[in-house]
Design a protein around this nucleic acid. Sequence first.
DNA 1: CGGAGTCTTGAGTATCTTCAATGAGCGTGG
DNA 2: CCACGCTCATTGAAGATACTCAAGACTCCG
Lengths: 242, 242
Amino acid sequence: MHLRSKNPVTKAPCAVLKPLWDRLDESERSIIGGAFSSKRYRAGQALYLQGDDCRGLYCIDSGLVGLRRSDENGNSALLRLAKSGDMLGYRSVLKNSLHRNSAEVLTEARVYFVGRGKMRWLMERSAAIRDYLFDQTFQDLDRTESCCAELLTCGLKQRLLTVLLELHDAYGGNTDDDQYRFDLPIQKKDLAALLGTSPAALSRVIGTLERDGEVSFRGRRISIPRYAAEQHVMAAQQAALN
Amino acid sequence: MHLRSKNPVTKAPCAVLKPLWDRLDESERSIIGGAFSSKRYRAGQALYLQGDDCRGLYCIDSGLVGLRRSDENGNSALLRLAKSGDMLGYRSVLKNSLHRNSAEVLTEARVYFVGRGKMRWLMERSAAIRDYLFDQTFQDLDRTESCCAELLTCGLKQRLLTVLLELHDAYGGNTDDDQYRFDLPIQKKDLAALLGTSPAALSRVIGTLERDGEVSFRGRRISIPRYAAEQHVMAAQQAALN
DNA sequence: CGGAGTCTTGAGTATCTTCAATGAGCGTGG
DNA sequence: CCACGCTCATTGAAGATACTCAAGACTCCG
């Protein structure tokens, strides 16, 4: 991008590290700059599998990655989607433990990687990096807790709407007219897994929502009437109370 | 306990801080020793409410505290139980944010408190305290994520068994004979809220489990046949893959 | 004993699962 | 280009699961 882009010290290695980058001093930057390698993944590949031991930290630059947990009965669910800017595996790095989830690439993705040795080394040197990871952990906890709360209190319909609006925010569709529009970036079977249900049930729920005019699917193109979206967001915000 | 127990520097102010205490040096101990105040709560009282701003950190010495989240429709659920050794509110302290959940005392409890100013001050001084909180956050995240995964994949029956076994571990009943036994420490309506269901549904589920011989309720006294418990635990452990 | 809160039970309904069949989309190889 | 196989998506039907509302029973405590 920039004129001096060949100098590794002047730019963040990937978008995900931009906020961290700004907090680092020159020497920290030069250390971290060379620690990352990057790789492209196609949909269907896995960054790591549940039960693997931890090789290092993955930073998603582009694409969508699903975190899947499977149980003994073959049941599995997507705990969440990770998108550009998210970091995966930092817990296993810091606790030196096995991965508790699988990370599977859902849409073609570019991912940056730091081996866990380097990662630990960086953690010991830089308070900025420690603080940054601490913040990330808090964010993950908030998100997971909210997800948990929604699972405890809401039905499929509401949860589907929540996920769709999150996808809309993340995948910035236009909100020009009176509809929120965007393209569903993942397959419906993955959307179903994210909601903890079957594709069949999802299909039916979408049917009833369309009948009620709360959402419209045309192929992958999704439209949500502004009134329905805002009503849903209002409720969620009021629940969070801030 | 010890001979010199009157010296505040030599003993941890409460059980919850024991693991932290062992990591601190003399000066850190003397600082933190005077920072805590303690208070007894009766069942039904609240430590704080969802939407309150954060006064400080609560450390549970004894008793059970439920973390409840309510949404706009009056629906509410217990996200989790906190027991002796757990710390509440540290996220709001560190992020300077509002409480996202209410903390209500379910059984008579003793709780230690540190104001958020002191808390921050301590955080800045002591790396041991920071690390300790970081660990706690990780544990919370793991627990919440597992809860979320279970909600996505399991029915009421399994979730009830999981909660009962957790309570058994926490509330140490005897495992002398071929039954896991303990007293249900909370009301059934709270147990229902913890499972995200109604007392009515819970009652029915218990009925079917008793009919199948997987659990037995006599008043508050609960017995779980060893084979049923171990089968359930096995499955869960296999799921965690470590 | 009375009252409040808690727990159980019943009946009807809504939601979700499972299995199976069908259809739609897509890439491969003839 | 089309036939084939594959995965994904939808739909139907039957059954299981869970929810709501409401009535009644139980328990604790004054």
